[in-house]
């Protein structure tokens, strides 16, 4: 039986192997973190971690990631207990509308896991494939650097 392991819990996804991971996470597992932005892997709003690697869930089929460890925004922390990176985004007020923030945080999480003390340039480069239309990029970069500092 194929299973989807998300944020430490296992879900039966029998019959959904060909569905986009994003729709299964949002519609079946009722997770709000990953967002539909383009369906084309161009904007990054749908980013989740698969075995620690940032993946665009809008173009990933469920069948391709069964039995791997999937982490969504909800897997980092909660409203009551946000993790360091989420906390840093609050402290820096790092958004306007916040629609792209899921992707930015997940991409940054992957960066920090691999490189705990990145330079500003490395943060910008890592986030260059994540689009933000409100113009909160500098705040988000500051938030990632703050999280790295306070880690």
């Amino acid at each position: 039986m194929p299973a989807l392991k998300v944020n430490g819990r296992t879900h039966d996804v029998d019959g959904l192997e060909n569905s986009p991971l994003l729709f299964v996470l949002r519609n079946d597992l009722k997770l709000n973190g990953p967002k539909f932005g383009c369906g084309l892997a161009q904007c990054g709003a749908c980013t989740v971690l698969v075995d620690g690697q940032p993946v665009r869930s809008c173009v990933t089929q469920v069948g391709a990631v069964v039995d791997q460890e999937i982490t969504t925004l909800e897997g980092l922390g909660s409203l009551e207990k946000p993790d360091k990176l989420q906390r840093a985004f609050i402290d820096e007020q790092a958004m306007q509308c916040g629609y792209c923030v899921n992707g930015v945080i997940m991409r940054a999480r992957a960066l920090l896991d691999q490189n705990p003390h990145p330079t500003e340039g490395e943060v910008r480069l890592a986030l260059d494939g994540n689009l933000c239309r409100c113009g909160a990029q500098n705040r988000m970069v500051r938030a990632v650097l703050r999280a790295a500092r306070e880690a």
Binding site: L31, L73, S78, L79, F89, M95, N102
Partner: peptide, 26 residues
């Protein structure tokens, strides 16, 4: 601090996209 931001960084229901009433169709 803005009241909505903690919701948005944690994936807590706040966006219209997160509204899933019973029996919803696409």
């Amino acid at each position: 601090p803005r009241l909505d931001i903690p919701f948005k960084v944690t994936g807590t229901n706040i966006f219209i996209q997160d509204f899933r009433p019973e029996g919803m169709l696409h």
